[in-house]
Nucleic acid binder design. Sequence first.
RNA 1: GGAAGGGUGCCGGAGUGGACGAACGGGACAGUCUCGAAAACUGUUGAGGUCUUCUGGGCCUCCGUGGGUUCGAAUCCCACCCCUUCCGCCA
Length: 430
Amino acid sequence: MIDIRLLRNQPDLVRTAMARRGSPELVAQLDETLALDERAREIVARRDAIRAQVNDLSKQVGALRKAGDTEQAEAIQAQSRALGDEERTLAAEYDDVQAKVRDLLLRIPNLPHPDAPDGASDHDNPIVKGPFGLLDEYPEHQRVPHWETAAALGILDNERATKISGAMFTMQRGQGATLARALCQYALDMNADAFEEIRPPSLVTTATLTATGQLPKFADDAYAIERDDLWAIPTAEVPLTSLYGGEVLDETQLPVRMMAYTPCYRREAGSAGRDTRGMLRAHEFDKVEILAVTTPAQGADMLVELRDRAERLISGLGLPYRIIEICTGDMGQSHHRSFDIEVYAPGCDNWLEVSSVSWFLDYQSRRADIRFRTAGEKGTQIANTLNGSALAVPRVWAAIVENYRQPDGSVTIPEILRPYMRGATQIPAG
RNA sequence: GGAAGGGUGCCGGAGUGGACGAACGGGACAGUCUCGAAAACUGUUGAGGUCUUCUGGGCCUCCGUGGGUUCGAAUCCCACCCCUUCCGCCA
């Protein structure tokens, strides 16, 4: 969430930022938040003044009782007791208003970076790099959707996945399953030079899912296990961000670089019926995520580093790709600045979003309460977080099947993946 | 799932109703001593909120979490969470 003090002190700056996101309804929300915040502070001032009196009177009672002046002590007790009722009323009122402020604040999106391109929707996202490796013309044998190729090769069995788990679940088989796992191992190995590998839990608490911004606003997108108050993670970003939640790190520890392979679970509530074929959209998929916790000063460079690392994985696979920057109108709620890598899939004739790299500023850290301390300085500062998909398996898998399809219907394995495929050079046609 | 014990500051650990934001020890930092260091001695050393006549000060909150009792709670009561050990179950 954004800093309430920023909203208090520079409301126009925040209003302008929200206007850039193209959400005029947010401005009213800002005003409501400000008004409630002012009320909350007024109430808490009165509450604290009464508490101060009660504390003072209580000390007097203690002293009087010690001195044996029971009568006077009881008189003061009665006085203090009367204050107690007022205190309770104010405290309840404050808690109520404060909860409202927090709830509003949790729903206010992050401030876009000054350099983030303005725009209304994904149509306005500029291409900032590439395209690379794109052919002028694609031969017929590459113009086959991956689900057709995969069916012919027996490496994808979504019918049976649906039988087992319902619509929008996928299942890879044989070399197809190996390829999915190879991609994960490849992504982890390529970042092991600087990133600590984590194997986090895939089920997290409500507090954890709130820290990264999925809750309270996007509860419908996540799988809930209500009986145990747990949620299935939509991305490793969720557990990794909260890994240092509630902790105060030493500045010398920063930046912290972490990576994790996890399954990812998404209800896709808003996109039922879209991309139902093949591997483009599913309720469960594999992804390797890279994530960093930094000081505010380190954020900009880390964004570039993460983006470069994600790009290196895709270019290493020899897939045609481009990098786009997300405009203010298309930005996710928690994002400050964001880039996507898109891979061209000739069979679907589509640019597939395979990676998203984002800087969150202190938006998530404030929710998760990740702070750091600088030696010799008093107090703490709120950290920055950034993350990126190193490699999201299904769409890269699909792009490989389509780009590497041969005239005989087989699929050549990208050279860099062969060590992870037990040396296989191709997925042979039946 | 059952039983027992426990959760206090950077760490260890005391504290079972009144001057406790918390003894004591350790650590860290600063100073004294020293050519320098060690040792010793002295001092300092949590976070958050809010107000302010602001390079300072006032007030409030925080002893796992949330409630309750009380004039007053780290301390008493209730619920929950987590940790340790034992039993059960289990990959």
